[in-house]
Simulated assay, not measured.
Amino acid sequence: MTSPTALCAGRVAVVTGAGRGLGRAHALALAAEGAKVVVNDLGVGLDGSGSGTGPAQQVVKEIRAAGGEAVAHNGDIATSEGAASLVAAALDSFGRLDTLVNNAGFLRDRMLVNLDEDDWDAVMRVHLKGHFLPLRHAAAHWRAEAKAGRAPAARVVNTSSGAGLLGSVGQGNYAAAKAGIVGLTLVAAAEMGRYGVQVNAIAPAARTRMTEATFAETMAAPGEGAFDAMAPENVSPLVVWLGSAASAGVSGRVFETEAGRITVMEGWRPGPTADKGARWTPAEAGEAVTGLLAAAETPQPVYGAS
Rank of each mutant, 00 (worst) to 15 (best):
D118E: 12
A32Y: 11
R11L: 13
G105D: 08
L184G: 01
A285S: 12
L128I: 05
A146S: 10
A203F: 10
D41A: 02
L238P: 07
R96Y: 04
Q58A: 15
R150W: 07
V302G: 01
T290C: 09
A216Q: 08
V38D: 03
G67R: 05
L100S: 03
D119W: 04
A18P: 06
R279P: 07
M192E: 15
G196M: 13
P55D: 01
R143S: 14
V264T: 15
A231V: 14
A176M: 04
A122D: 09
A89I: 07
S160Q: 11
L184P: 04
M124K: 05
G162E: 14
S247L: 04
P272E: 01
D41L: 09
A72G: 03
G249S: 09
G267S: 13
V239M: 13
V302I: 09
F215P: 02
I202W: 14
T281D: 11
L184F: 08
H73K: 00
A9F: 00
P4N: 00
G193F: 03
D121R: 07
L184W: 08
A154E: 04
P222D: 01
R155Y: 11
A163Y: 03
Y174C: 14
V37D: 02
S3W: 13
L293P: 03
R194N: 08
A140P: 07
L184Q: 08
M230Y: 12
V38S: 02
V240N: 02
A274M: 06
G19D: 11
L22W: 06
A163F: 07
H26T: 06
A144G: 14
E117I: 14
D109R: 12
G249V: 11
V156G: 11
L112V: 12
V264F: 12
L97H: 11
P299L: 02
V101G: 00
L133H: 09
L115Q: 12
S244C: 09
G260T: 12
A139V: 08
S3N: 10
A188W: 02
H127M: 06
R64I: 04
V254F: 05
G167Q: 06
A78H: 13
A259Y: 08
S236L: 15
T208C: 12
S251L: 05
A305L: 10
T2A: 14
A176F: 04
R20G: 10
A248I: 07
P272S: 00
R136I: 06
A190C: 10
E33V: 10
A140H: 10
G45D: 08
M111E: 10
E117Q: 14
D118C: 12
H137Y: 13
V101K: 02
L28E: 15
P301E: 03
V239L: 01
C8S: 09
I63N: 05
F227D: 08
A203P: 06
A144C: 11
G68H: 07
A88G: 09
A248Y: 08
L46R: 12
E287S: 05
P4R: 09
V87I: 14
G50M: 05
V59I: 01
V87F: 02
R20A: 01
P55R: 01
D109Q: 09
V71Y: 00
G10K: 02
E217G: 11
T185F: 03
A72M: 09
E62Y: 05
G252K: 02
A179L: 03
E297C: 05
G52W: 10
F106Q: 05
L293N: 07
I202D: 03
A278H: 13
P270Q: 02
D76C: 01
G252L: 10
G172P: 11
I63W: 03
A151R: 15
T185Y: 06
G68Q: 05
A35E: 11
E284R: 04
